[in-house]
């Protein structure tokens, strides 16, 4: 059996639907980091039959609620001293800052790239967000 050891401090993103782990890995740009990261795919699960897990041995300075776009049943475990100190499922964020770039070519953020993109939730059901600057509406159904 393939074994991956537990981590002392960091984040474990669990219950990711099988095949979606790579999206989280890419979204968090974990291929560019210098700390230990494990992407486990097709891990047997009682609840889901098959799931993906991402283990990150570091803190991440980002609101991980955005992962709810993929699936709201994902579990985020915060680990310290090899123990889970916080466990939660991501909730649809009211605001998303600095993560998604506005695709409207007429938006000021398309030319002033130092501006922090900010999206405001306008419809929780449809996961629709509006750009704070140009008000272009996007539907967040994937990362």
């Amino acid at each position: 059996m393939l074994r991956v050891t537990s981590i002392a401090k960091g984040i474990v993103i669990d219950h990711i639907p099988a095949g979606e782990g790579i999206k989280i890995f890419n979204f968090l740009e974990l291929d560019k980091v210098n700390y230990r990261v494990a992407l486990l795919i097709n891990v047997p699960s009682k609840k889901m039959k098959c799931k993906d897990i991402v283990k990150i041995e570091n803190e991440i300075n980002m609101n991980l609620d955005i992962l709810s776009v993929l699936n709201e049943n994902i579990t985020i475990n915060i680990i310290e001293n090899e123990k889970i100190i916080k466990k939660y499922s991501p909730k649809i964020p009211q605001e998303i800052e600095g993560v998604i770039k506005c695709k409207n070519p007429r938006c000021i953020t398309s030319v002033e790239t130092k501006l922090k993109n900010k999206y405001i939730l306008i419809n929780e059901e449809t996961k629709e967000y509006r750009c704070q600057y140009c008000e272009e509406v996007i539907k967040l159904t994937s990362l």
Binding site: N104, R106, C107, I108, E112, C134, E135
Partner: peptide, 10 residues
């Protein structure tokens, strides 16, 4: 006046 949308907000 600016050609980009949202420039006034900025």
């Amino acid at each position: 006046r600016h050609p980009k949308e949202g420039s006034a907000f900025v």
